[in-house]
């Protein structure tokens, strides 16, 4: 019931060895191993006997530690994926690229402006982009990398930020770029500039911080901290619950603790 063995690949009971899950050949860095067809590339490495140190992070498709390239003997095409998310296929020739050198600009976000000039000053490489689309084809997150590079060249930081939002910074784009650009560093610069300067500021947060600094909630919180469990339970049960999906104009009946 929801339990499993400590091992993250199928146990004998679950099929390995009794033919339920067929095995397929994969070529880890050119060397042939037979692994259950249901495994991800990451688990295939472990099944083959590797103990991963590089190339393994969240095991959930978001940290960017396990960028992987592979191809098949009958294809010219280089394919990409995250090892923790990509299921093995027969005759994959694969390698992880857990690190790829890429230079990053140093900047003080307070001192720069959200415009093309900042972008070019920090990353003059932006203009080297030849729009070959190799980066987009290399992205395991299906990001339109070339399109955001085009936007970066125009100084359209909003578009860069939105298009690159799902970037896990695995670096595969940079590893394949013929003009040696580090796209993902450019993208996070754009996202931070967008988040700080282009997205409208949330006035309500600042207003609340001001109220807190003025000490508005000190005594009511002190009373809560001193309250015994019965009183806390009563107050907890009496809380007015904001209806799910209520708009910004919703107001609680009792405003004395606001």
């Amino acid at each position: 019931m929801g339990k499993r063995t400590r091992k993250d690949f199928p146990t004998k009971e679950e099929g390995r060895g009794n033919g339920e899950i067929p095995k397929v050949p994969v070529f880890i860095m050119g060397k042939r191993y037979e692994v259950p067809a249901s495994l991800t590339i990451q688990k295939a490495f472990e099944y083959a006997g590797y103990q991963l140190i590089r190339g393994c992070g969240c095991r959930g498709g978001i940290c960017g530690a396990c960028g992987t390239v592979y191809r098949f003997p009958d294809s010219h095409k280089i394919e990409v994926g995250l090892a923790c998310q990509t299921v093995v296929r027969p005759n994959m020739y694969l390698t992880m690229i857990p690190f790829f050198p890429a230079n990053r600009a140093i900047y003080d976000l307070e001192e720069i402006r959200p415009d093309l000039e900042s972008m070019i000053k920090l990353y003059p490489d932006v203009m080297r982009c030849v729009q070959c689309n190799t980066c987009t084809k290399s992205c395991p997150m299906d990001i339109e990398v070339m399109d955001y590079m085009a936007a970066a060249m125009r100084g359209d930081l909003t578009k860069v930020a939105k298009l690159s939002f799902d970037c896990v910074m695995c670096g595969l784009c940079a590893s394949r770029c013929p003009t040696e650009i580090a796209q993902y560093h450019i993208a996070i610069l754009a996202r931070r500039l967008y988040g700080k300067y282009i997205l409208p500021k949330s006035e309500h947060t600042d207003a609340m911080v001001k109220r807190i600094e003025e000490g508005r909630y000190d005594s009511m919180l002190n009373n809560l901290m001193k309250a015994d469990e019965d009183k806390l339970k009563r107050l907890y049960n009496e809380r007015e619950i904001e209806p799910e999906g209520a708009g910004e104009d919703w107001k609680p009946k009792d405003s004395q603790y606001l």
């Binding site: 309500h204 609340m208 909630y217 339970k233 907890y236 606001l258």
Partner: peptide, 19 residues
């Protein structure tokens, strides 16, 4: 974070955390 003063405050956040 209780950032919306028109309907929320650290008071209510505290009660939720404790409950």
């Amino acid at each position: 974070g209780a950032t919306k003063r028109s309907k929320d405050s650290p008071y209510f956040h505290y009660l939720d955390v404790m409950g």
